[in-house]
Amino acid sequence: MTPAFLYALVGIVLFSIGLYGLILYKHLLRKILAINILGSGVFLVMVALAARTGDAVPDAVPHAMVITGIVVAVSATALALALMLRVDAETGQAVLPEDREE
């Protein structure tokens, strides 16, 4: 197994852990973290598999895509965190209404 595949497998594991957390946990901060883990998994798969070029320089296109993806993820996370603060301010709990436990 080449390192490229090993890293890609780690990415896949992160992706699944993220999805697990997103579905299972109720606190919004946890959900937001879970989505970020999930996203990191995708980015890792993308970047890792770009190193299958043998001795040549790794493929730069997925690297650039991941940078783009990271900026998008940061932006979305910022918006999500700001929304979470508002949810907490409006309802007293940082959870979605269907997950509220009185």
Binding site: L28, I35, V42, M46, G69, L79, A80, L83, M84, E90
Partner: peptide, 22 residues
């Protein structure tokens, strides 16, 4: 809260799509 749920769903959708793109 509706916006929050929408954002989470939308991000999940994008990430699944992006995994496909990768």
């Amino acid at each position: 809260t509706a916006a929050m749920r929408y954002l989470l769903v939308s991000l999940l959708g994008s990430m699944l799509y992006l995994m496909g793109v990768a």
